[in-house]
Design a protein around this nucleic acid. Structure first.
Length: 275
DNA sequence: ATGGTTGGGATCCAA
């Protein structure tokens, strides 16, 4: 009888990936899971209703826990694990039930939050662009929520496509992107406030110095994405301060951006010792 | 200054 395995001893690997439609990328996902087999996998932009989710692939790879929250066409988040984890919460950001958050309680009590922050449209003005206004509201709400978490002081991990590249080295050209949605000062400063509200530790920058360029997303519109390398770091893994010393490794799996039928985002894998 | 690509699900929207 297949039983859900107990929590692994020692470090676990945790992946986050904006997959840009799971049904369009079953082969890509299969290859990724064969090669990297993370213990826990968080997805954003699954773009599929729950009753149409392709469970078989994840079943075949041993993800006995599958927590999904999808809607037709857009958004959609999911958490998979090779061992038992509990659904913790599904937050409706800004009062909209639009499938941008799902969270799970891991065996040691750490709560894992998976977010998909709105991209925010093209015009970086909340008066002229409702989508940008909504993005800023979501960031403000996540900041207030982070402050509440800080009061409780539990162990938390926050991952996802946050659609903001906070540091100058998180974009290919700081100057040229200052007025481009994802790197405007109101967004980058908003993100820093959110980090400060819970003392979130940027798990990827914990290993990659801020002087070094680092991206997780390259637009489909650039025909020569790798050579041009006009990327942005939109995807993040943050941990609450008491987990900082438990971080073992972090890596953007850029190779996945170069595969056939790739997502425009690369996955990130963090190794953390929750034991 | 502009247009470039992709996926979903309808003939356009979101990214």
């Amino acid at each position: 009888m297949p039983k859900k395995p107990a929590a692994p001893k020692g470090p676990i690997t945790l992946a986050t990936w904006n997959i840009n439609s799971i049904r369009a990328r079953l082969d890509l996902m299969d290859g990724f899971l064969r090669q990297y087999a993370p213990d826990v996998l968080c997805l954003q932009e699954t773009k599929v209703r729950d009753d149409q989710f392709p469970h078989e692939l994840f079943d075949a790879h041993g993800y006995t826990t599958r927590l999904i929250k999808g809607q037709p066409g857009y958004n959609g988040v999911a958490i998979f694990a090779k061992h038992q984890v509990e659904l913790h919460e599904m937050r409706a950001l800004c009062g909209r039930n639009d499938c941008r958050h799902i969270s799970a309680k891991l065996p040691d009590g750490t709560v894992l939050h998976n977010y998909y922050v709105p991209a925010g449209g093209d015009v970086p003005d909340p008066v002229k662009n409702d989508k940008f206004a909504h993005k800023l509201e979501v960031v403000a709400e996540m900041t207030a929520w982070s402050m509440e978490l800080k009061k409780k002081g539990g162990k938390e991990i926050l991952v996802g496509d946050l659609n903001i590249a906070p540091l100058e080295t998180d974009v290919w050209s700081h100057k040229q992107l200052l007025n481009v949605v994802s790197h405007t000062p109101v967004e980058t400063e908003g993100m820093l406030k959110m980090q400060a509200a819970r003392d979130w530790v940027d798990a990827v920058r914990h290993f990659v110095p801020a002087e070094q360029k680092l991206y997780s997303w390259w637009s489909y519109r650039s025909p020569n994405w790798e050579l041009a390398d006009k990327g942005r770091r939109l995807d993040h893994v943050w941990v609450s301060p008491q987990l900082k010393g438990k971080l073992k490794h972090a890596q953007v799996i850029k190779e996945m951006r170069g595969k056939e039928k790739a997502s425009d985002h690369a996955p990130i894998i963090v190794t953390i010792d929750l034991g």
